[in-house]
Design a protein around this nucleic acid. Structure first.
Lengths: 366, 366
DNA sequence: GCGCGGATTGTGCACGAGCACATATTTATA
DNA sequence: TATAAATATGTGCTCGTGCACAATCCGCGC
């Protein structure tokens, strides 16, 4: 005999069935619009469902359902320690957590300096007919082509890193790069004596393309925007230098030259993650009394932060972009929880004093 | 016959059992240390579990397990718009999400100015014999008494707001108040002309206790620490004023007086969430050209941020303390995922330019 | 009245883990 | 050696939902 639920317990399909004088199967048919139910029954059951505010047990649902969701991730190739690597780390973490939702992930990585590479993988992605897509939108034309096709096939997609506002993505997780540059300027210029020189260090590959994502340019824009906003152009002198990503010997020479030509350098900012190279230089030359700001918590950056050679690191938890992005897709597919949103990662400002307990994720699992 | 799992499918207890030539029941006994297993079998099974990296299916686990967990939350009384209110909001959100884990929550609220109130509820809490406790540790002696008892009963507990390092909590979620004051100083002092006056506004209840949590004092300490670190005491003049939480007419008079006595006020900082009161005053008096920094995203604060009367708001997502705290407890209980940790909320620095897409939570559910 | 077909509705198994109880195997004891 | 006791292991049901298949009902034509 079918036990009546206790008052405080969650209502089940079986309870609805009892109340409507039908079997669980019929209720199920109504819930899933599977047809084959007499109109009167359907109406009655729907009323009771509403009245009782029935919410299916997600656990039971996931356990019962055999549907498999294959997500495809489309990101640039990554090497350890770089921004994209971190994003992938976040994706892997999310992957483990959503494994129970029957979500599987495949990662495709393109060469970010080669459009054909992106286009080719976009094609391959479509052939895989995924249930959802997470991507970093590079090469606008190609992205539009891809998202158009995805929209036509009703495949949800999420952007990380940068957004493409004109298309209808499920969500976007990104960094406020401009803003972080703005903050960097505030920090740098506070208690920096007037008429000092500030050195902005850039870095290029041999090809001429700057390293990192295109976020670095935005950071610099933000930095300069601050200076402009408070009309500080005349109070500080800005000097730039271009280092080479590969060749370190040459870089030293370049820095030597800049320092000899600018005796009053009091601040150095680097908008990519390689501030440790500057710290290397400063330490070697025993140069003190220069304030340095960099980005990202590479091992070596953190060491220099702790020993004082780097004053401040700005971090934006790139891992979370991947983590949230994938989680959003999985939840959307498995639970129909729509999570249409734009969300920026926090801008973490790290000094010697607060680096110790810094955490990217709020939980340590396992 | 027991089907062999397909290579890419997730490994189940049954698979482990097959590999170890035992039944699922025996594997289950090993996993849960329930004893009654021959040493050789146990060893063999454990090896296979490790080798195969077995992770139980959470859905199946939750569905099977009948255990109910009652969590008790012990926080100060809250009114809408205040810090504790936000923490409770986060708790409620988490509550919904962990409802499927058979976790129920009860909130007890004490008068934060009255020790007996805390002690009484602590007693009541113990009588409820909860499965876990989330609390804001007020009244050190009482907290130690309570946590000692909890430890003896092996009831896990999580701190929010402030930490008590000497006891063995499962986790602590808090704000880096000192640090946020430090950052506030950086922001305030950048591009503030030398020898200006900075006004620090305090607020008191009629009783004499300052409002907000005891975080406000820490914020001010951080602010002053920055000034000290860069030896800026002589470059800026710091002036203080004490407003009353209740009486607004009197406050105006007080501010009038301060302004008349200090002609060179160029910056105002308030370490609690009431910066809008200052903005009210400034707007009424049509005073411009003063940089204001406040805390927390009250509706009115945000309005003033948008219209420029407040330059910067610092927010630390108090909601997340509650949200993470409760989630950590629930996961710990339901999944044995230990998450022993100290975790600080991000320090969000909000200007007119980046307030628009600000989000406390990364997902919009439902 | 019988049978057929379509429309409804009911039933039973699967999902993976937990757990109580049943059974098998070994060891101890008279 | 028989038998109880202790140890070790296996079996089968449970949780709530999804879904395939089975069972029923009703009306119609012959």
């Amino acid at each position: 005999m079918s036990e009546l639920k206790k008052s405080d317990e969650r209502i089940r399909i079986k309870d609805i069935a009892t109340l409507a004088n039908v079997s669980a199967g019929t209720v199920d048919r109504v819930i899933h619009n599977r047809g084959g139910v007499a109109p009167e029954s359907k109406k009655r059951i729907e009323e009771i469902l509403n009245e009782m505010n029935f919410k299916p047990n997600k656990m039971a649902q996931l356990l019962a359902v055999k549907k498999e969701y294959k997500l495809v991730v489309l990101l640039p190739e990554a090497v350890q320690g770089d921004y994209w690597w971190d994003i992938i780390e976040g994706i892997k973490r999310a992957e483990e957590e959503v494994a129970d939702y029957h979500v599987k992930t495949e990662i495709l990585q393109f060469n970010q300096y080669n459009m054909e590479s992106f286009a080719g993988l976009a094609q391959r992605l479509l052939e895989m007919n995924p249930a959802g897509v997470l991507m970093a939108p590079f090469f606008r034309r190609e992205v539009l082509k891809l998202t158009k096709e995805l929209e036509e096939r009703s495949i949800p997609f999420v952007f990380v890193d940068s957004n493409v506002e004109s298309v209808n993505s499920l969500a976007y997780y990104g960094q406020q790069s401009h803003q972080s540059g703005y903050v960097a300027a505030k920090i740098m210029l506070s208690s920096l004596e007037q008429f000092s020189t500030i050195l902005l260090v850039h870095m290029q590959r041999s090809g001429g393309t700057s390293i990192g994502s295109n976020q670095t340019a935005r950071r610099e824009e933000g930095f300069l925007a601050y200076i402009e906003k408070y009309s500080l152009e005349s109070s500080y002198q800005i000097v730039r230098v271009n280092l080479h990503a590969e060749d370190d010997g040459g870089n030293e020479a370049l820095l030597e030259e800049v320092f000899s030509q600018n005796q009053n350098i009091r601040g150095i900012v680097m908008f990519n993650s390689r501030i440790y190279r500057i710290a290397d230089f400063l330490e070697k030359r025993k140069i003190r009394n220069i304030r340095t700001i960099g980005y990202d918590l590479l091992e070596r950056n953190v060491q220099y932060l702790k020993n004082g050679m780097v004053e401040c690191l700005i971090a934006q938890r790139p891992q979370l972009q991947g983590y949230y992005g994938l989680t959003a897709l999985a939840r959307h597919l498995a639970f129909k929880q729509v999570s249409k949103s734009v969300c920026y990662m926090p801008i973490d400002i790290l000094f010697k004093e607060n680096i110790t307990d810094y955490k990217v994720y709020p939980f340590d699992v396992d």
